[in-house]
Design a protein around this nucleic acid. Structure first.
Length: 173
DNA sequence: CGGATTTGACCAGCGC
DNA sequence: GCGCTGGTCAAATCCG
């Protein structure tokens, strides 16, 4: 998947304001959502970027457990919208106040940097995110959120290091 | 010692 | 059908 869904094709993606909490230094950066095209409509965008999906939010978690039920599970196609942030930062791990557990890492084609997959550690919260950094200029980090948090922020972000790092990012370091 | 990370294997979709 | 690729699992490992 060389073209990342976020990108700048204005027809298939739209810029939105995040509906959940995001740190201030992210809000001022570019935010895109991946518009999910309903099955049956046109296919002018690259909606579902590859497969496997893996259950996010509350709807589906269809592993390979599709049972012997005769009723085929419809609406498996729809992917959750993904919010992508593009930020300039030296570090990959942007602290957004949530607790993330890394569950995978893959090399990206046409990109020398790997992509990391994280999942929210809160129980029952299946929000995922993936972090990738552009090989073009190493200063840009793309963070893609998938799903919505259904719980308050856990981490205390009020220590000096966090505040300092965020200020540095905000100022364009 | 418990939770997070690492890392190769595994799996599903898609293109050919 | 086969192979490639992106996404996830899970055992081993790391680290506080």
């Amino acid at each position: 998947m060389e073209n990342y869904p976020i990108l700048f094709s204005s027809s298939s993606t739209s810029i939105v304001q995040p509906t959940q909490h995001f740190p201030s230094y992210m809000i001022n950066h570019q935010v895109f959502t991946d518009v999910v095209v309903p099955p049956g409509s046109s296919s002018d965008n690259k909606s579902q970027s590859s497969g496997s999906n893996g259950g996010n939010d509350q709807t589906d978690d269809h592993h390979h457990v599709m049972k012997s039920d005769k009723k085929k599970v419809v609406e498996k196609k729809v992917r959750n919208p993904r919010y992508a942030f593009q930020t300039r930062s030296q570090v990959d791990i942007l602290d957004d106040g949530y607790r993330w557990r890394k569950y995978g890492q893959k090399a990206v084609k046409n990109n020398k940097h790997p992509r990391s997959y994280y999942r929210c550690t809160h129980q029952g919260c299946n929000v995922k995110k993936q972090v990738q950094r552009l090989s073009k200029d190493e200063g840009v980090v793309v963070t893609t959120y998938e799903g919505m948090h259904t719980h308050p922020i856990e981490k205390s972000t009020d220590n000096f290091e966090n505040i300092l790092s965020q200020m540095q990012i905000y100022n364009g370091y």
